[in-house]
Amino acid sequence: MSVAERAAGGGSGPEMQSSDDGIAFRCRSLAVDLGIADYKRRIIENLDIEVPRRQFVCILGESGVGKTTLLRVFGGLVPAAPGSRLELNGQAISGPPQGAVFVFQNYAGSLLPWRTARKNVELGLEETLPKAERQRRAMVALEQVGLADRANDYPRQMSGGMQQRVQIARALALEPRLLLMDEPFGALDAMTRENLQIELRRIHQASGATIMFITHDVDEAVLLADRLIVLRGKPAAVGLDIVSPLPKERDQITTKELPAFLELRHTIYEMLRGHGTRA
């Protein structure tokens, strides 16, 4: 239904096939400094990542390692240190790039409480699309996250999970080629989180977007990712970079019973623990 429609729409878009080498996102010798002048601290150093189009990448790491900062650099919200190279679809990133949308953990802070769900989703389209077209796009996006019937509700009338879905719909409405998600399910209860994980997997399959997903929840990362990257060290660099052996179709019960799931989970935990004892 809506998913198929979306997949057809996304696939036929001219931008989807426009680029060449199949790499959606690339960073070379990336370094990031936080603070100003004499108080600069190097958070991330010498980071190389290449992400093929349509890949679902989960980035893990201990709290404080710089995951969120890294994602904010990818989203153009924080500048990288001089000498770093950052590219989205072959174009250097300086400032929030076209075609990439950020989904914040704090849905309540990022949605506008005086706008209905539909008007929130339309926010990013208002300067570029005529009214009828953006309403249609907003409704398609809301349908994708299962909230078409709540289009006229205000965020305060919705549960946390629904509000986060509105934020995801707001990102999807822009038909992004890259979705940057900063612990989007971190503030939700376990049941809602599990439902949204599977939904996000489904949306990813249907939309054809590349996803970079930050989390500190190992089970979540292993369940969702096509590829897992663990950050470690101070300043942080890539400690582990593996492609998931799990089948594309995932669900909460059977996927988590697969030996490959448990093995991957074990590897990641060991990586995270190993760093813990060494430091």
């Binding site: 989203g75 919200l77 949308v101 914040f104 309540a108 990022s110 707001r170």
Partner: peptide, 18 residues
């Protein structure tokens, strides 16, 4: 004002005026 609200404006490419 929530910084996320203003960051959201940036990632959604809203103009300064908007």
């Amino acid at each position: 004002i929530s910084p996320d609200r203003l960051d959201a404006a940036r990632v959604l490419h809203l103009s300064w005026f908007a």
